[in-house]
Design a protein around this nucleic acid. Sequence first.
RNA 1: GACCCUAUCGUCUAGAGGCCUAGGACAAUACCCUUUCACGGUAUGAACCGGGGUUCGAAUCCCCGUGGGGUCGCCA
Length: 469
Amino acid sequence: MTTRTSIVRTRFAPSPTGYLHIGGARTALFAWAYARHHAGQFILRIEDTDVARSTPEAVQAILDGMQWLGLAHDEGPFYQMERMDRYREVIGQMLAAGTAYHCYTSIEELDALRAEQEANKEKPRYDGRWRPAPGKTLPAIPPGCSPVVRFRNPADGVVAWDDLVKGRIEIANAELDDFIIARADGTPTYNFCVVVDDSDMQITHVIRGDDHVNNTPRQINLLQALGAPVPRYGHVSMILGDDGTKLSKRHGAVSVMQYEENGYLPEAVLNYLARLGWSHGDEEVFSLEQFVAWFDLDHITASAAQFNTEKLNWLNAHYIKLADDARLGGEIVRRLVKEGVPAGKVPDPALIAALYKDRVVNLNELADCAHPFYASVQASEELTAQHLTAPAQAALAELRTRLANVAWVAAELAQALKATLAATGLKMPQVAIPLRVALLGQPQSPAIDRVLAVLGREETLRRLDQILA
RNA sequence: GACCCUAUCGUCUAGAGGCCUAGGACAAUACCCUUUCACGGUAUGAACCGGGGUUCGAAUCCCCGUGGGGUCGCCA
């Protein structure tokens, strides 16, 4: 451990070619938490050098996702497309220093080379035909062909680093080739931009997905060629789908904002993601603040983790129970209005939330539960036939009379219900279930007296009259 | 094919050579609670990939095998 007080600087560097997916969100969470834990800085960088696939919508989607999760950055967002001058400057320096060189091999030639190597069951790699060497005669420069710039990768030795999550990793330079750092049109490529940025932005800890392990030795070599300090690296494993295969669209929700739409609370998603591949003893449920206080890279699992919607659901249900009624009420209204249901002030959505919050798994279910309070829901014929029988209707008529004059609070409503039972000789379910079907269009609900209290006298009587008419 | 990573209940994981008769959580099952359905409570079943070492002692360390994942672009 260094005694120098070096501030921790981490970054999240997505490329804006789509939404913020769940795996990226977890990587971002870990990088963010690591910076927060060490009172350092978290930088957001948009890697948009792939002009063909990058879109402003995707940038916005990433920003939205980060904001919804509450992962605020301290610097940025920096856009790589705005840093072209800087990249060109560094490429010029490398060309001048001889750590990079021009290569005139055409795409066709490269394809042929690759095909040949694959046919020989070799690892496809550039053969170094334009790499300058003492006493070597380079091919004649083909006319009308603009060159790419390649990095002069060390020919031998090994690149090694102590990965913060995987431990020591060593890769032989012989496995690496002289990769392209600038295309024929002069634009820089990924590995190069990352290195210049991580260096310029003084990133101390690169926390990123597992899929970048193979880029790391190239980046370390580049950094060293540039004489720049090498950050620490931590490669977080991937998240697999529910079925153990690579996460993709067919797994349903992969975008973070899809979870918002599906009725998940950000704190539930955060807690779930934090616990997926990281642990703090037996702790399962904890706040973001607690997570930041506990988080370290030592307890991240090195292997891939399978996503488990059931556990996320459990956490979501837990956080819904904890959530403030007014907040849940707002979610109810927002979601119902989006579906064209005239949800509003009466009944108070917060009261409905209080009634249903400990029985739903997500916000959409909560909204569904609230739906019949704002718009009468017709029971199916089957339910009507089954529950609104003649004796049941008689009991409801009996109850309706009592309800007309009772004080509209749950305790009094319960009394009216009991008096109806006494008068008709029926058991509670024999009245309560028809009543639920009559009022809400469904045979299950929370305690019926509480439902009545929230529905209100006017609406309750109106719906009863409609059934009894 | 080459290279890299990885391997504990169905799933997420605890486990840093003796605390392990392997712990917790989700899911499952059973029971309790109950004004229906849920919620909640209690209980039960469920795992160290295989083979070799090292050691007095291995889930933990090493090697091999096997399974899984990743990477091999003028994509990021």
